[in-house]
Amino acid sequence: MTILCVRFQLPPMYEAALPGLLDLLEEFTPVVEALPPDGALIDVRGAERYFGRSAVELASVIRVRSLALHGVDCMIGAGPGPMLARMALRDARPGVTCAVTEDGVREFLDAKPVAALPGVGTATARTLCEYGLDTLGRVAAAPLATLQRLVGAKAGRELHEKANGVDRGRVVPNAVSHFRLRSSGGTPLLATDRLFDRDELDPRRHRRALLSAAEELGSRLRAVEKVCRSLTLTVRYADRSSTTRSRTLGEPTAHSADLTRTAYGLYEALGLQRARVRAIALRAEGLTPAEQASHQLTFDPADEKARRVEEVADRARAKFGPRAVMPGALAA
């Protein structure tokens, strides 16, 4: 086992703690891939040799240090590769690391439903189940040609490999320095999330949460005189899985209407069908000073009016509080 998948049990609206937790992981290995809003993948091959401890023992140390230094518990899955570590995480619980050894991969995968395999969506799982391939063991035993006829050549080959425990993924260090940049110098982390009181099925409630989050991000960006280049949406589901999508904006902006449109676009692109959503997180990324940003002039008076109204609303919120002015959809 060389890969750990860590999910920190962060309280709602506490995503700002993630940079410090990523720093904690970097004390064990520099190969850390952040999985916002609350997780990370880490490659501990070098750490196993350096500290003379197994991956499971390192996971225990990480958990203890996370609790002692940050007051945050975590769940950890361990496996030979990123895919297996992610799948092991689903079976983990606080205080107990779920570990998949190289010799135990086949046993771990065989009985799992085909939908448990990363990358297998609802439509693909339904197609496979119609042909009796409802477990990963049956998929692994099926001829490659059969799978390729059912789901396509490339997808069939990847499905066959993954069902047989072939994990070609690797940990890609990505966002650790990025998070430091956003949290250094006292600058607030421009991210927010909305946790539902219960697992929410209603798309209207999802969109209302997106509107609220985009309005908050826009207000905070303008308050620190920044604009963002991209927006990232993370949707967390009732089964503790999550989906993250990012989109680059047409131009750097802090305009709430633009952020809201982009957030809606990211959400619609997911194509959720009666998904039980537990929380929605939105992050503004690629921050630059507003004074350095360019804005495409338009001849649309409605756009200019909206921006002037936004300026007035910001002044009212600064004086009377964040709920002094809000979209009608949020006031209802």
Rank of each mutant, 00 (worst) to 15 (best):
A116T: 03
R90C: 03
G286V: 09
A269S: 03
A34C: 11
P11T: 03
R126A: 09
T127G: 04
A275P: 08
Y237N: 01
N174H: 13
V105Q: 04
R229C: 12
E268K: 06
T253P: 11
R276P: 04
E268N: 05
G121Y: 11
L272K: 08
Q292V: 09
E216C: 06
E215I: 05
R49I: 11
G121Q: 06
L67E: 11
A316C: 11
E225G: 02
L189G: 05
A115W: 15
L210E: 09
R274N: 12
R63I: 10
Q273T: 13
D134K: 08
S183C: 06
S177K: 14
P289Y: 15
L231A: 09
R198H: 15
A68H: 12
A123Q: 04
V151Y: 02
L270S: 05
Y50W: 15
R45C: 07
A123K: 03
T234M: 07
A153W: 00
M75A: 06
F196N: 01
P19W: 01
G152L: 01
L249E: 15
A111S: 12
C74G: 05
E158W: 00
A155K: 01
L266R: 08
I62T: 07
L25G: 02
G39W: 10
R86T: 00
L211W: 03
Q273F: 11
V235F: 01
P37F: 13
R317H: 10
N164L: 04
E200G: 01
A16T: 09
N174L: 11
E161A: 04
P252C: 09
Q148G: 05
G321V: 05
Y14D: 14
A163G: 00
A115E: 15
P11A: 06
H255V: 14
T260P: 02
D258N: 08
L18K: 11
A142S: 10
F8D: 06
A318P: 01
Y131E: 08
S219V: 13
A141Q: 05
R63H: 14
S66E: 13
L41C: 10
L195E: 15
G52P: 07
Y50T: 12
R86Q: 03
G104I: 00
S60W: 13
T260S: 11
L231W: 15
G132C: 07
V172A: 02
V171G: 09
L330F: 11
G328L: 04
R323K: 06
E304D: 13
R274I: 10
V312I: 15
G185H: 04
L41A: 08
G156C: 03
A214M: 12
